[in-house]
């Protein structure tokens, strides 16, 4: 494998001296067809990368907003196959599409089969929040075979040893969780985020692996703040909230597009 759409996109953002904007939405929220339209609005507004969430019944890293969105998707009958359909539609927008999934649905689908199917759908990689590199042998083999990036997470609690081990196992980027908590909007970006990125860069100096920050970023100003030190800014709950708050889909799409524009301006306002 030489490259992926994800790597190309992140490299282009770095070349342009800005951070990439990574937007998250659960596939099937509020239903499969509508989730594709929301993602299209996110891309129109300026998202470079879309994290397509595989809605899961036991989302241990997610706060109430994304839990509600995932519940809606599951209630609408969203399945793993639907996630691939949403990935196909996402890739068709020109944005890089990665899946964010807890491990159990992937294991249940079949690790090799999941990787092959995702690659065929045009997906560039998978973010696996509850898989640690030491237990990822099957995933490393399957993602290598399918040409997919694998994104693991680091957190403020990660030791130097774990930062090195995790980033060595990552391709595409490493997901830096800004704080010891769950997804959701917050009034301030945690001050642990910048320290974590700096510590992570100390172990990725040789590889140049991009470091993208997620958790608690929900305004253009916060995106600009994080863009000053990170390669990518990950936003999820803010998009879900706008869809949840809208009286109908069309209104929601306008709010989502405008929110993406605000964030896209933020990631271009580096220092």
């Amino acid at each position: 494998m030489t490259t992926t759409a994800l790597r190309t996109t992140l490299a282009a953002a770095r070349e342009a001296d800005r951070a990439a904007l990574i937007g998250y939405l659960p596939a099937g929220f509020p239903d499969v067809a509508s989730s594709i339209r929301v993602i299209e609005a996110m891309v129109e507004g300026g998202c470079d990368v879309i994290e397509v969430g595989l809605p899961y019944s036991d989302p241990m890293m997610d706060g109430p907003t994304i839990q509600r969105a995932a519940d809606r998707a599951l209630s609408a009958g969203t399945t793993t196959e639907d996630v691939f359909r949403v990935v196909e539609a996402t890739a068709a927008t020109g944005a890089a599409a990665v899946v964010m999934s807890y491990w159990n649905p992937i294991e249940r689908y079949g690790v090799d089969r999941f990787a092959e199917r995702l690659a065929k759908a045009g997906g560039a990689g998978v973010i696996t929040p509850d898989l640690i590199p030491e237990e990822a042998d099957a995933w490393v083999a399957a993602s290598d075979a399918a040409g997919l990036d694998r994104i693991f997470l680091v957190a403020p609690s990660s030791t130097e040893r774990r930062l090195a081990l995790t980033t060595d196992a990552c391709t595409g980027f490493v997901y830096a969780a800004s704080l010891m908590g769950v997804t959701g909007t917050r009034t301030q970006v945690a001050d642990t985020a910048e320290t974590l990125v700096r510590r992570t860069r100390e172990v990725t100096a040789a590889s140049g692996l991009p470091v993208c920050v997620g958790l608690g970023i929900s305004t253009g100003a916060q995106a600009a703040e994080v863009a000053a030190y990170a390669d990518g800014v990950i936003v999820g709950a803010g998009f879900c909230q706008r869809v949840l708050d809208a009286p109908d889909l069309e209104t929601g799409l306008i709010a989502v597009r405008s929110f993406a524009e605000e964030l896209a301006a933020g990631v271009r306002s580096r220092g």
């Binding site: 899961y56 019944s57 036991d58 599951l74 793993t80 649905p105 992937i106 249940r108």
Partner: peptide, 10 residues
């Protein structure tokens, strides 16, 4: 684990 065919908890 109690799960369905997609790996969702029951």
């Amino acid at each position: 684990m109690l799960q369905d065919e997609f790996g969702q908890t029951l």
